[in-house]
Nucleic acid binder design. Structure first.
Lengths: 110, 110
DNA sequence: CGTGTAAGGAATTCTGACACG
DNA sequence: CGTGTAAGGAATTCTGACACG
C-alpha cells in the first residue's frame, strides 16, 4: 500500500544450493518441504527455485521442529496458525491507528 | 561492534545470472566491472561469484554512470570519494554521541 | 576501453524413481 | 513419512582469448 518495492528480506533471489549452505539442510530436504507446502519458492522461467531470506528463516524454523521429531503436517498447521495470529495483530494496529485519526477529526484538528 | 550477524542487505548470496536480471547488465559487463575493481563479489569454494543487494545497487549506479559515458576509472574514483565522505559522516556521528554521553556524566546523571 | 562471442570444462539444478524404514 | 542416491538432461558459471573499435 505504500512502497511498491519489495524489501530485501522478501526478494526471491537465492538459489537452492546457497539456501542449503545457509540452513544446513540438504537440497533434497528443501525440495521435500516444498512438496509438503512448507515453503513456496519462486520459479524462474527455466524452472529453477529462488528463495528469499524470509524463506531461509522459515526453513531454519522447520529444521528446529524436525529435530524435535515434529512431522511436516504438524509444522504446516503450526505455521499457519502463527501467520493468522500475525495477520490479526497487524489488523488490530491498523484499527487503532484509524481510531486515533478519527479522534483528531472529532476535535476539528485534521 | 554490536550485532555480529550481517544484515540481509550485505549478505553475499546472489549469483551472477540473477544479478544480471536484477540490474539489466550482461554477465560479461558485471565480470568486467569486477576486473576494474568496481565491485567485489564473494567467491565460493568452487569459484562462483556471490553478490549482495548492496552490490546490486552499486552495479545499478555504475550502469547509470556508464550510460552517461563515464569511464570505469572515473567511476571508481567517484565511488571511493563517496565512501570516504560516508565514513567521515559516520565518524562524526560517533563523536557527537560520545560528547552527549560525556555531558551526562558531567552532570552526574549516568 | 568496454563489450560480444565461441570454446571447453566443471558444477548446479531439475524431475521421476527406487531404496529404506 | 522423510531422506539418500544414481540417472539423464538442461542450464549456469568459469577462464582465457579473439574481435571490434
Amino acid at each position: 500500500m505504500s512502497s511498491g518495492e519489495t524489501s530485501y528480506r522478501e526478494r526471491k533471489v537465492i538459489s537452492i544450493g546457497t539456501v542449503s549452505e545457509l540452513t544446513g539442510l540438504s537440497v533434497r530436504q528443501i525440495r521435500y518441504y516444498e512438496e509438503r507446502k512448507l515453503v513456496l519458492p519462486h520459479r524462474t522461467n527455466k524452472g529453477t527455485r529462488k528463495y528469499s531470506f524470509t524463506d531461509v528463516e522459515r526453513l531454519m524454523e522447520i529444521a528446529n521442529h524436525r529435530e524435535d521429531g515434529v512431522q511436516t503436517a504438524e509444522i504446516l498447521k503450526e505455521m499457519r496458525k502463527k501467520e493468522q495470529r500475525e495477520l490479526n495483530k497487524a489488523g488490530l494496529k491498523k484499527q487503532m491507528l484509524r481510531g486515533q485519526i478519527n479522534a483528531q477529526f472529532q476535535r476539528g484538528r485534521p
